[in-house]
Design a protein around this nucleic acid. Structure first.
Lengths: 116, 116
DNA sequence: AAAAAGTACCTTGACAGGCATAGTACTATG
DNA sequence: CATAGTACTATGCCTGTCAAGGTACTTTTT
């Protein structure tokens, strides 16, 4: 996985990332894991431990619901579906993120001292 | 302070914010605190406890150095100056942030399912 | 003159998210 | 048949942020 992104730069976006993927359709834990790598063009990996923790959190808070798939072969898969509440959460998170970007732009954009 | 930004969305940028302010010139702890509020147009406040922790961390890592001001009146002020290493750190952090933004754009930009 | 608010520094302890590590169980591949 | 991949889960650590609290001085308000 190419560059290293400080995990703290992604922190706070994990839920949003998951919810966004589920907006495209139901998906299962490991599938979401793979999808994140793919969507980032192999440039970023959200660790499995992080994700499974997040799934539990999101379900407890009512943003997603889970159900077991009926695979007749291969490992069993636990699927997740985004709820209406989850959709609202996603929209809000996106707004928060846009707002945070504006603030951060003001705070870390290069000032007068550029070349130095 | 207007909107509430999830602290996790700013997390990881604190050091960069401080370094950026010090690039404009030496400043003291409380002054930096005030400057962040001002630069964000009163929209964001980094808590003092967070900042003082960060100053210590940055100094230990050699990104800033400190010295006491010689105020003849008013409370004593501890000033900070960015080091060469700190300047390099800032540039790198900025690059990391730009990269993270690109990745996040891919991961949370609204997909097909927009209106839904 | 006393009270309140502001400046300026600092410490401690709690919390939460991310992750390293480890483990189970099954399947596909060379 | 061993290795790598799929798929899920649990435990415990680390780190950054912040709430809460404290000290000491100065300025403003009443």
């Amino acid at each position: 996985m190419g560059n290293t992104i400080s995990t703290d730069l992604i922190r706070g976006n994990t839920d949003t990332i998951i919810l966004n993927i589920l907006r495209q359709g139901d998906n299962y834990g490991y599938g979401i894991y793979k999808e994140i790598i793919k969507l980032s063009d192999n440039q970023y990996e959200l660790k499995e431990a992080t994700l499974y923790t997040a799934y539990r959190r999101l379900e407890q808070e009512g943003y997603i619901i889970s159900y077991w798939g009926d695979e007749t072969q291969g490992g069993r898969r636990k699927y997740y579906r985004i709820t209406e509440l989850g959709n609202e959460r996603f929209e809000q998170n996106k707004k928060d993120w846009d707002f945070a970007k504006v603030i951060l732009e003001k705070l870390i954009k290069g000032g007068i001292n550029n070349g130095k």
